[in-house]
Amino acid sequence: MNTYNPITALLIFFTISVFLYLLFRPNKGWFWLIKANSKSNGKIVVEDILKLLYHNENADKHLNINDIVRTLKNSDDLILESINKMATHELVTIESDMVKLTQSGSDYALRIVRAHRLWEKFLAEKTGFDEVEWHERAERKEHELTKDETDLLASKLGNPQFDPHGDPIPTNTGKIAKIKGNVLSELNVDTIGRIIHIKDKPDIVYKQILAENIHIGSLIRVVEKNASRIVFHSEGESFVLAPIIAGNITVSILEKDVVVEENLARLSILKAGETAKIIGISKEIRGDSRRRLLDLGFVKGADVSIDLLNPLGDPKAFLIKGTSIALRTNQASKILIKKV
């Protein structure tokens, strides 16, 4: 221990710490980057191209080779090579630079889409991952699931029809349900409807919608519409969105004669001493969590009031069916009530 000196020891320690941090820090650590790079093989590029073509053809847009190279992040050579490979396997046809899906290419793409949406559904129902992360995780997982695994996953989830964003999940025979609805930004003032779909792309817009606390399945009423903003009421609160963001939300218009509960509110805004009737649980609460709430008695028509406030503000305890149940605010905001 002749060369020992606390300062050298500390310096060595911090050098090692910084190195480990750079190597393993979340998302951008060198270790993860290298791991991700080594995985990006031909299969993933092929499948990404198929998906891109599929989504565009669904919107009646056709892409040429340049568009594909520009959209995907992989190296140009790899993409060109992949497209050629796909052409020889008859997944696509190339006619004067335009790339089109063949029947088998379209089937393949549909299978990837199915895996992606099923995985999102799985993440929503069975795990606690944040909504923001579903898409990205499904983007990676869709390439790993085989057809049999996908089918098993589907049957375990009860062959769901829609993914958590409201997108239809193709069946294993390729059937796909149609979304019938209108884009929120194009609705007229006083239209009443239900949110059925929230687009998860682009990322920035999706995160903004999530931050606004807008839920799929909510009833809305448009109260103002102009070039700069769209205002709508939903569940006792007022929301203001820019038209470009509202364009990512699809609403199914309800018949005029459907009675809409006007003083619908969220349980989170209930104050001590007030009593309310439960109208329902938002679609955003899924899986086990939803089942548990139902079991505890948060069902339509039940009376609810505040039992206890918390010294730290959150959670609050609600008195329901004679029992005191504590819920966190983010959960209470997804239970709909009508004040009495």
Partner: peptide, 18 residues
């Protein structure tokens, strides 16, 4: 919960018995 066990509390409800 920020790294390897990323996620949010999915099912929080606590019964306060008498």
């Amino acid at each position: 919960s920020k790294t390897v066990l990323k996620g949010e509390v999915s099912t929080f409800n606590l019964e306060l018995p008498p």
